[in-house]
Each structure stands twice: as structure tokens, then as C-alpha cells.
Design a protein around this nucleic acid. Structure first.
Lengths: 203, 203
DNA sequence: GTCTATATACAGATAGAC
DNA sequence: GTCTATCTGTATATAGAC
């Protein structure tokens, strides 16, 4: 029985991995159950016996991805130099944001938010909301230490994070022919951190 | 012949209107040619004789939408008060950005950018790129007049526009249950314009 | 040029053997 | 629990009458 159970879990995992990859890569409609079964190296019936329907499998795949975002930790230790601190946060944020996988989940949640409101809600909470709260917390701390003068930490966090996306993120989102070079991106991020610090410099 | 031609154009337009509405509303895959024909009040064969295939009709619909964005004009006349000027630009931008239709085209272009790269490119140029250039031009002018001190107008424009999207836009994009009230949005926009002016205040 | 009717393909989901 | 084979609906696209 334990052996069967183990085998079940293995196949279930294979299916989930294949489904996640295909859904995020090709989208919901363009991904067929046949293809998922083939890629997971199981029969289609096995897919159905594990997940019931295409809708349920889709939900399971995206939910799992959202859960994985909860693990990410942006907490810092070093607060001696505000410029260094914010630059580090900015770069971590940008790297995470532009990861191929993150972008794919972002897109599919935004696109399917009418059909699957619970999924987009989940993504929003695990991604943007959680991050904003973390950064708002950081802003409040910097205000308390006198490193910055932030009357509204939440506003500041939103401003900081949205600005960082910048042109680079938009170009990736729309897959434009021209893409920014790492140097251009770095320039922009540095300039933006500096601009943010100027705006919230203590009096 | 002129009469026939006229009739053609009328039906063609009906089809295009119906297709645009359905594609942007329901997405590419979920929109069937039968439904388009029904909503346009013509037969399916008429749809095909006018547009050849679903792909071509989709491209025609989105291209037309992108073209319509080129018409939008953000130019201003009054530059006496920098705060008033930027606030006006900010509000116009935000209103346009969160219009249901704009958002729908944005989403579908981002989602289908792998299958239809020419469409997302078109949208990017007609939307984000054009707007950024206009605002960059404005920033350069404000710098020249001494109202602001902007070393890099393009960076400043990107920062200004991306910041304005803020939490409100993300919540609309993901259709979260909680949405920001007009008052909250107004607060954020005012605070953000003020923050921007602080960051680029002349020495 | 426009319609009704049809061909063809493929998707999601199920039946039944092992 | 897993497989092969099949059912059923629906989508794109086309044929042929008017």
C-alpha cells in the first residue's frame, strides 16, 4: 500500500510539473490534456483520475506556484548605508520580477482573472501585496532611524517598487524586439534609488 | 457597384466592431467565429470572405485599436504652475490607463505577445513608448525653464509614469476583491506628484 | 456578396480491460 | 491505479445555392 501510495504521488507530481510548465508557457486554452499527459509520461485517464478536470488541474498548478512565492524572503541585515540597502532591495526585487517564470504566472493570472478570480487574488497576495508590505515595513524602519523622512510608508513602498519596474519590465512583458541591456537597466535602477532618496531625504 | 461597395464596408465594419469587442472581452481562444458572426449579425461565411481567417481578423481588430491610441493627445498649454501641470498630466494618464478598453487591449497583447509579436510591438509603440516620449519632452522643457532640474528626461518620464500606476492599477489588472476608492487614488496621485517634484526640485 | 449546410479536426471527458 | 479506445461536443474552415 505504501508502495502504491508512493507511486501515486510520483505520477501526481509528474503531472503537476508538466501542467505548470505547459500552462505558464502556452497559456490555458492552448494547453491540451493530451499534451500534459504526454509530457508527464502518463495516460490521459491518469491525469483525470488525479485531478478531475482541466480546470482543477489548472487551479492546482497555479496555486502551487503562488505558494512557492511565499517562501521568498527579502529581509536584510545591514542598514548602515541607506543607499546600499535600497540598492540591494531594488536589485533583488527586479531580478525576481523579471524571472521568466514569475512573468509567466503574472501574465496568466492577469489574463484569466475573470475566469479564475481566486487565482489572481492568490497571486496578488503572495506577490505584490506581500512585497509591498515588506518594503513598507522597511520604509517605516528607515523613517524611525531618521535615515529617511517617510510620512506614508505604504505610499513610499508602492512608489519605490512600481518605479523600479520601469521600461525594462514593460519591454519584457510585451516582448518587444528592442530590449534594454543589463547596463541600461543598472543605470536606471541606480538613478531611481538616488531619486527616491532625494525625494525622502530628511529635512 | 458603389452600392455594393458600401454594403461591403458596412458589414466589414460590423464584423470588426463585434470582433474587437469579443476578443478584448473574452480573449482570443474563448471567442469563436460563430459568436462573432452572430454578434455582427452576418453569416459566418461573410466573416471569412472579408477577413480570411480567425488569425487575420484578430490582427485586424487589435491593430485598429492600437491605431486609435495614436490619436490621444496629452499636450498642455499651461505651464505657470508646475504642480498643477504635472497633476493634470498624471490624472489624464491614469484615467486613460485604467479605462476598461485600454486595460483589455493591454492584457491581450501581453498575453499573446509570443504568438503575435507584431501586435504587442504595435501596442507598445502606440501606448507606452509614445507616452513616455511625450512626457520626456515635457520634462526636458521643464528643465529648460528651470522649473525642475532633470538631468535625464527619459528616466524621469519613466519614473513618473510607472509610479502613477501604483497599487490601484495592479488591483484593477488582477481584479482583486478589494479595490481602491477614488479618494485613495487621488491621495496617492497627489502624493506621488509632490514626491516627484521634491526629487527633481532645482537646487 | 451573402446565406445555409457540411466537412474535418481536435478538445475534454469517459468506458472498460488489466 | 493505470492503460487503450471511444464518445460527444464544438471549433475552424469550406462547398454550393441564390
Amino acid at each position: 500500500m505504501q508502495k502504491n501510495r508512493s507511486k501515486n504521488e510520483t505520477k501526481r507530481k509528474q503531472i503537476l510539473v508538466a501542467a505548470t510548465e505547459l500552462f505558464t508557457e502556452k497559456g490555458y486554452a492552448a494547453t491540451s490534456m493530451d499534451l500534459i499527459a504526454k509530457q508527464a509520461d502518463v495516460s490521459k485517464q491518469t491525469v483525470y483520475s488525479h485531478f478531475g478536470s482541466k480546470d482543477d488541474l489548472f487551479a492546482a498548478a497555479i496555486e502551487q506556484k503562488c505558494d512557492s512565492y511565499r517562501m521568498l524572503d527579502f529581509s536584510l541585515e545591514d542598514f548602515s548605508d541607506i543607499n546600499v540597502t535600497l540598492l540591494e532591495v531594488a536589485k533583488r526585487f527586479f531580478t525576481m520580477l523579471t524571472a521568466k517564470e514569475t512573468l509567466a504566472v503574472h501574465k496568466i493570472c492577469a489574463y484569466e482573472c475573470k475566469s479564475y478570480p481566486q487565482l489572481s487574488e492568490l497571486f496578488y497576495q503572495a506577490g505584490p501585496e506581500r512585497l509591498t508590505n515588506e518594503v513598507a515595513h522597511l520604509m517605516a524602519m528607515l523613517d524611525e532611524k531618521g535615515a529617511l523622512s517617510v510620512a506614508n510608508p505604504h505610499h513610499a513602498a508602492v512608489q519605490f517598487l512600481t518605479m523600479l519596474k520601469g521600461e525594462a519590465w514593460l519591454r519584457i512583458e510585451f516582448n518587444t524586439k528592442k530590449q534594454l541591456t543589463p547596463e541600461e537597466i543598472d543605470d536606471y535602477i541606480c538613478a531611481t534609488v538616488a531619486m527616491f532618496i532625494r525625494a525622502y531625504a530628511p529635512h
